[in-house]
Design a binder for these strands. Sequence first.
DNA 1: TTGTAGGCGTTATCAC
DNA 2: GTGATAACGCCTACAA
Lengths: 348, 348
Amino acid sequence: MKFEAITIKDIARALDLSVSTVSKALRDSHEIGEETKQAVLIYAREHNYKPNPIAQSLKKGHSRSIGVIVCNIDNNFFSQVINGIESIAQSKGYNVIITQSRESYEKEVSNSEHLSSRSVDGLIISLSSETKNIDHLKRLYEKGLPIVFFDRITDEIPTHRIIANNFKGAYEATRHLIQQGYRKIAHITSSDSLSTTSERLAGYKQALIDAGISIDERYIKFCLHGGMIREETHEALAELLQLPERPDAIFTASDRLSTTTLSQLRIMQIPIPRDIALVGFTNSISADIFNPSLTSVVQPAMEMGQQATEMLVSLIESRRPVTQFEKRVLETQLQIRDSSQARQSPSP
Amino acid sequence: MKFEAITIKDIARALDLSVSTVSKALRDSHEIGEETKQAVLIYAREHNYKPNPIAQSLKKGHSRSIGVIVCNIDNNFFSQVINGIESIAQSKGYNVIITQSRESYEKEVSNSEHLSSRSVDGLIISLSSETKNIDHLKRLYEKGLPIVFFDRITDEIPTHRIIANNFKGAYEATRHLIQQGYRKIAHITSSDSLSTTSERLAGYKQALIDAGISIDERYIKFCLHGGMIREETHEALAELLQLPERPDAIFTASDRLSTTTLSQLRIMQIPIPRDIALVGFTNSISADIFNPSLTSVVQPAMEMGQQATEMLVSLIESRRPVTQFEKRVLETQLQIRDSSQARQSPSP
DNA sequence: TTGTAGGCGTTATCAC
DNA sequence: GTGATAACGCCTACAA
């Protein structure tokens, strides 16, 4: 099966012109006679001529495509970010190639290399939870590949970054639980190597400190796979429940973690929020129909994707080397629902 | 900003060989001396040589990439399908370029043309709800572009297709509602131009007929945008509720429709399933934590993506024109939960 | 105003 | 065994 398309050469032959004349006519060059130009244009249109982007890439050294690496596409937050990326990319004439690391360091490395060798003009990436070493990205960066980090970022590479205000989002979520009367607030989060994890953890801790509640490290659980593996969350939850001072609330730090924890609490038949209240980072559009409806820290995912893409395109299209880099921080939104209703204070 | 990579030419220069010798050595040709071969291989490895896929594409006439068009990536069913596509594509050495039609005919046309001009080797597509004319795909098909349809298919183009058993899925869902004691079962579905819509509608009707329940067309509501626009579903629901014989159950035909209907019923404070029971097609991983947990018709989305990709790759790599086409049908699964609990039969 | 030639990186053919 | 040459489709100095 071969996909045969019309080329400049075909047009040249048909009109008895040289390829360069045709090429110039197509690009509306001023050095081509009006007559010839029209003839070429008309012929091209009639035969539905489309320049071969592969050949253009080879010639021009870029591909008008951008690569995206996220841990998982099957996740509300990331699919919304990708929506944002796609919309801007399309409007600027770029293709988007999406790949998933599935939280695996190895896959992240191979994906990034694959993308760069496919001559993407730039890369938008949120690091995998396994990633500790970013030499693979440094290599690409040093070779001149523009990179923009979002969500799970690093400061080891000087380039544009965009994140949600994770600290504040976590702070507000925790403070909200405190205001609702909860004191023994646990935190289930992802791998501690992620920037999001440490920022959200810091927000959580600060809120406790500001309320005069001491921090109990046993209340903090790390799930290395960020909830991709259900058992992991299951276990973290089980450990929390077995604590002598069982938590009366949980703050979960990511999309999957939030839904899995909620699901698991339901399976264990632990009433929410009566026995345990719950607040979580999530971009699920269904948080309002959860049982109970889930108080959520929502990130401006679409906007994050859009701005990341705008920043990347500006890097790609910049004529001179960029040396001033931005770190944009977008505000989160706390949507208060039933899972964090005020504590009924049964026994003191 | 330029991305500089090492080429065959560089190796040739460094080792004082010709490019063709290096090229052959790299491809482990038998006509190259063991010594030279080793020298080249070692040098290539040390300098991390990677053949330029763009150049390879130009030379070989294909790009080892496949295009995907879905209506919306931010949707459990489709993101799971894409997961499946990605996994197989990766293992077979293909890149995946994902685009969204967002239920717009126009975007579907431009995406398909964009992809084909980007020289994808094949296309996997689920039609947009607006699409009635598929000339744009016929054009590509006739030029030799391998296409595989999934989910929302057409029979106007002879090629491989893969779908869920929509009829049976809908039949079982409806029969389940009947068995639970419901009689006035409404159906909210997508645009009637979609294959999925008519198949699910047929299943719904057949189940009613088999139970001796007459079909009331006023109970059937079409949402042209498949739930993308919330107001549409809102309105359909409102009309159902105003019917003299208000339905006692609703069967929704798609992912977004199901969650939106559930959400809307909650907002209207209509108890589920007491006043209205609900069963829906959905691949949400959170259906179990909905309020109430949602009885779902689940499609084998991941598998659908995997098989679609395998079929496409077999088309792409087939040496001789393929004339025998398959239509695979995958079974759905009915997951019974609280939203369809047996009818309490208040007033007869 | 139009055409020629060279090159982007790779590979296939054919000559040495 | 190795190398020169042409070609994939497009673009652009430079010649004519």
